[in-house]
Design a protein around this nucleic acid. Structure first.
Lengths: 350, 350
DNA sequence: TGTTGATACTCAAGCGTTTGAGTACTACGG
DNA sequence: CCGTAGTACTCAAACGCTTGAGTATCAACA
């Protein structure tokens, strides 16, 4: 392993192997045209010297940037603490790195900025593909990105991105199963604290939630749309838990919202799950760390990201993929859910 | 804004403006050699058409990739949920995007893989600079990266990376101030649950913690080194809170560890802060969401990342920067700290 | 022995920029 | 009216790689 000041180029390898740069190129890209002996000689010299092809030169001629792009569009400064994103990104990156593909990451304030970033990346030919996260209702992004003629995958329900290669999790089924389980535990007054209904997954979950409740002849459930932050969840939860007909179980839309909701329940002197059951969406060690530990509608977000990465690489390679279901999240029951046990302290006039 | 299939090139702009590509280049890079009128004409055509320079071509000749790299080396799959990282990355990216610089993100299993990634990125000339996160004791990275002759900044105390451009926060001072405050509240048996002492910041904090305690004539504090995860913190906290001489205040090394510790205290039937005070390191809405809300040694991690980004861009521009103190984190007191109020239920034999 | 067809290679053009050297034009002082 | 200096531009080479076209060698076969 030599550490030289001037970066090595293919010509250096070629000179040492006494062949032309073309031969080196053929050898290193596993193409026919060089003998096995020469190929091995070139390869060993290249690895010996620690040479890697200049990414820019390769991109310029080969039209492969070796990079895919991801934009996180989140208004609040601190929404990034939602564990989902980091896990997803880690999984995505794991899949990409198998094929030596880098991940370009950008944060945007709003949809306009996000689209500007896509346009710029495509114009600069910086990326070979894009990952569209947080699919929205009537999302303009799939259409616009398709017009840019760049491979992409959508993370979200294909019904909201017709014709696009999507990887999704069946949140509706997961929500329905959760409602059934809560009813089995004896709950009848259910509630949901959701993100904004502009999100496709929120709409899907909300609809599934209401349908599951009415299908089981429950009173129609509370659905509160909150700002996608801890603060939003706090006030929504407070509102629910201090209302006249208080729900006995609340299903949240992510981890942070559930943690915040748990805090509010504690503040109000309610015991979880004796007075109220709480369920988080997505799962992480955060849910395991609270007391009581949060029951969660769980799926493997890391492998969700990996799945997305593999699919995007396929699309880049020209393999046109169908929408692909990643998983049906399952309710993992921990300490925050259970049958209603104690008398209701607030309604009893504690 | 025209959306064309074939990407635009400089020659297209040149043709429309009836000038040479050289003129376009000069105009777009704000260099002398074109008249103001021509410059404006070229600029307006370029923006009209939505043209951006091909990143690869520019990198090939200009030796600027327009990208900096960051590797997250974390053994556990879920440590990424620590809010610090996402906030830091968001801040970093914000600073970079001001100068149209992208952020290449990679996760690595261990130090070896991290170094391999740096070597590859440098050899491929994919990045103009590197950010070295989580400085370790006797960290080999600054030395090796310097040998690669690529600009970099270290995030961490410059004493552990002599000669490198570093941006750091004075954790020692923050810890000392926190200890003083806890003593002011009446605490005398203090403890710390820390990450591995291979981390430079952990070593610094541990030392400052012990020194502050002995300087105030306290009994020597407990310092427990835990695996950097919620699980590690749980067992460390359990050990501390069920020991014979139980600490009355515990200072953690990050957010997740503190949340996990809070959960353990709850499980043991201890009231926070009446029986034990808890302090988190770093801060995020997560700390505000628990009950009681976690007091935290707080600094603005987002702007910490921004600071690092600006500094790295300076180094890339050849401005050799001195180590730069970002901040002295300050204890934000929330509900999890206070004077010892209740009799100790465990020691009283509840 | 000459033709054919592989095989193993080399040549050189080209990808879209930047940039130092070169050129045409204008203005101005002497 | 010439020389000079500046301004506004163009030319062409270069960056490091890929790739289609070309060439040399050699075995097989008629």
């Amino acid at each position: 392993m030599t550490t030289s000041r001037r970066p090595l180029k293919m010509a250096d390898i070629a000179a040492l192997a006494s062949v032309s740069t073309s031969a080196v190129s053929l050898a290193l890209n596993d193409r026919p045209g060089v003998s096995e002996a020469t190929r091995q000689r070139i390869l060993s010299i290249a690895t010996e010297l620690g040479w890697f092809p200049n990414a820019a030169a390769r991109a310029l001629v080969g039209a492969r940037a070796g990079t895919v792009g991801l934009v996180l569009t989140r208004p609040a400064r601190d929404i990034g603490i939602e564990p989902f994103y980091m896990s997803f990104i880690a999984g995505l990156e794991a899949a990409l790195s198998v094929q030596r593909t880098g991940l370009l990451l950008q944060f945007a304030q709003d949809e306009q900025a996000e689209l500007d970033t896509y346009r710029r990346w495509v114009a600069e030919q910086r990326v070979d593909g894009l990952v569209l996260l947080d699919l929205r209702v009537n999302d303009p992004r799939p259409g616009l990105v398709r017009d840019m003629a760049i491979p992409f995958v959508v993370i979200g329900d294909p019904r909201y991105a017709p014709g696009a290669t999507a990887v999704w999790s069946d949140d509706g089924a997961a929500i329905a199963a959760t409602v059934r389980r809560l009813v089995e535990l004896g709950h009848r007054r259910l509630a949901r604290v959701s993100e904004q209904t502009t999100m496709a997954h929120t709409t899907i979950r909300n609809r599934a939630f209401v349908e599951a409740c009415t299908g089981l002849d429950l009173p129609s459930p509370f659905v509160v749309e909150a700002a996608p932050s801890a603060v939003g969840s706090r006030s929504a939860t407070h509102q629910l838990l201090t209302g006249t007909t208080r729900p006995t179980a609340i299903v949240y839309d992510n981890n942070i919202m559930a943690v915040a909701g748990l805090g509010v329940a504690h503040e109000l002197g309610l015991v979880v799950p004796d007075h109220v059951s709480l369920v988080a969406y997505d799962d992480s060690v955060l849910c395991e760390s609270t007391h009581p530990a949060l029951s969660a509608i769980s799926h493997d977000v890391h492998s969700y990201g990996e799945h997305a990465g593999r699919l995007l690489l396929d699309v880049i390679d020209g393999v046109d993929s169908e929408p692909s279901l990643d998983s049906v999240p399952r309710l993992i029951e921990r300490g925050s859910t259970g049958p209603l046990r104690a008398p209701d302290p607030t309604l009893a006039g504690r």
